[in-house]
Amino acid sequence: MTRSLTLTINGTKHDIELEDARPTLLDVLRERVGLTGTKKGCDRGQCGACTVLVDGRRINSCLALAMSHDGAEITTIEGVADGETLHPVQAAFIENDGFQCGYCTPGQIMSAIGLFSENGTANDPEQLREGMSGNICRCAAYAGITEALLDAQTRLSGKE
């Protein structure tokens, strides 16, 4: 049975037709909407590469059926920069070498943005490490990621 749903993705409304209810939000973003910045690492909610914001909250988009988010506001990595100006978290990841292969990076950045809005910008490295531990980086760029998170917080608090 065909289903239709509406998602507002990075501020743009998308009316989506699905042949059935099976596609996950991740597969809809990648295969049907054509937003491939969000990555599939495990498809089971174990690695965090597919992290996006749904109504401002970070989720693993591989564990969400697209149908169950009909009407939601979704932010993906493609919607984070302001035109040519990078989001402070993006800039901090480059400056602090918070990635290597880059495959987990969209998820890391979305997770960091989500975490900061959950926790404000408390400057506690231990809390940051715990809060980011749903995002695996197999290259193990963790030293750079920690620096990037701390740097991003400084950039964000300076802005506010």
Binding site: T36, G37, E78, Q90, F93, I94, E95, G102, T105
Partner: peptide, 15 residues
């Protein structure tokens, strides 16, 4: 910093 850094942090890097 990485030459492809912007592509990787914006989701534009083509895997």
């Amino acid at each position: 910093t990485r030459r492809e850094g912007v592509a990787k942090v914006t989701g534009k890097a083509n895997y």
